[in-house]
């Protein structure tokens, strides 16, 4: 009687042990599967990103040696301008200090390297930052980079909108004297989109994290007012 009872409870202990072991194994395998899922997800992200990148790029005529900006003027002091065509603070900078920068270039005191970065693609529904920058590359090819850039800032679309369409960009280009057919084809084909990517990447590599960023001979300028820019250039030119 008592031995049968003992037998029963021993059986139960064994059964429980087996069940516990089974549970432990199952938990282990689901954990392993979940880790695999997470690792694969990360790898997918990496490969999607890689596939979005282009390996080669062609810089438009008028670019600097590194190929990541358009050079304007020949002055001794270098002013690097990192701007996104969609960035309101850049438009404001162009309006208030743009004439001063132009003057410094015309006086032969400074040259500008303009880096049209595409930081703000998520703030338009059509990747306007990339399209505008690539179109500016097309304008550089036609020798009208400065004129086109000024027009794009004058007609800057609002953040969150669709931005200017390719047709509107082409109209603006034709308006500043670019050949409508050549420029239009270049914009529509996105000829300089890989270049825009390079410009943007190099800016990040150089530690530029926001637009506008203004460097005078490599040093960031905090005071972006006309006086601040002029003072920085004159200090660097001494």
């Amino acid at each position: 009687m008592s031995s049968r009872k003992g037998q029963k409870s021993a059986n139960r202990v064994v059964r429980e042990q087996i069940a516990r072991e089974k549970r432990r194994k199952r938990a282990l395998w689901t954990s392993v599967a979940a880790v695999v899922v997470l690792v694969i997800a990360g790898l997918i992200g990496w490969s999607v990103f890689r596939s979005q990148r282009s390996d080669t790029f062609t810089a438009p005529p008028g670019a600097n040696d590194a190929g990541n900006g358009i050079v304007l003027g020949t002055g001794k002091v270098t002013i690097d301008l990192y701007e996104d065509y969609l960035c309101p603070a850049c438009r404001q900078f162009q309006q208030t200090s743009g004439p001063t920068v132009d003057q410094l270039v015309n006086e032969g005191k400074a040259k500008v390297i303009f880096h049209p970065v595409a930081f703000l693609n998520r703030f338009s529904t059509t990747e306007y930052s990339t399209r505008a920058s690539a179109a500016a590359g097309c304008a550089a090819k036609g020798g009208k980079f400065k004129e086109f850039t000024d027009q794009l800032f004058a007609r800057q679309p609002a953040e969150g909108s669709a931005g200017l369409s390719d047709d509107e960009l082409i109209d603006i280009g034709a308006g500043v004297g670019l050949n409508r057919d050549d420029f239009g084809a270049c914009v529509r084909d996105g000829t300089y989109k890989p270049w825009t990517e390079r410009v943007t990447d190099d800016a990040g590599r150089a530690g530029v994290t926001s637009t506008p960023t203004i460097l005078v001979d490599g040093k960031p300028v905090q005071d972006r007012s006309p006086d601040g820019i002029r003072a920085a250039v004159e200090a660097a030119g001494k």
């Binding site: 990360g42 992200g45 999607v48």
Partner: peptide, 11 residues
């Protein structure tokens, strides 16, 4: 930065 959003979605 490329991997993180996908890991977050998987989580």
């Amino acid at each position: 930065g490329a991997a993180l959003p996908f890991v977050e979605l998987a989580l």
